[in-house]
Amino acid sequence: MMDFIVIPILALLAATAVTVARIRNLWAAVMFTGIYSFLSASWMLILDAPDVAFTEAAVGAGITTILMLATLSLTPRRQRKSGRLSSEDFEERPSKSPLLPLLIVTITGCALVYGTFDMPHFGDPNAPIQVYPNPSFVEKSQPDMHGLPNVVTAVLASYRGYDTLGETAVIFTAGIAVLLILRKNTDDQSSSESQSVTGENA
């Protein structure tokens, strides 16, 4: 029953990904990325991960898209030529051969597919991940976390609390980094700066 929803979503996901790969118009690519995130979020919802789905929808489809659009508004909008979305936007670039990347990707993909053959099947309730540790997180989190109904939140705040701390640190790092990168050098430094060409390498 579920398959009637899942299969179209998966098909759409694949189609979106391929479109992003082929499209040359950056605005369109960004929009398709947003759509991709949104489709992923839908599938995550079906896969019983509502927390991740909501976050992905908000962060992936929302914030990322906004950031990218903001960047695009500061930078050229087209990858090369201007104009509306047209067949030209899907042209292959003559300068670069896509063969090598394609080869690498194929090999990597085949390796991964090879790896799936011994994986527990999708949804298998006896997969190691479902039976270990025992008692499971769902069971254990109840007494430990005073019965917080959302196990994901409970685990985030308790057992893997330090991941959450690290996550905060990551955001903080990125914040500092963006500030560092984008902050203008407000006052001109002494003339010594201009004559320094430390990293220059002709």
Binding site: L47, D48, P50, G123, P125, I129, Q130, P149, N150
Partner: peptide, 11 residues
């Protein structure tokens, strides 16, 4: 993480 016939881990 998905288990067949499972639901989201919200009690």
């Amino acid at each position: 993480g998905k288990v067949t016939h499972g639901t989201a881990p919200i009690l």
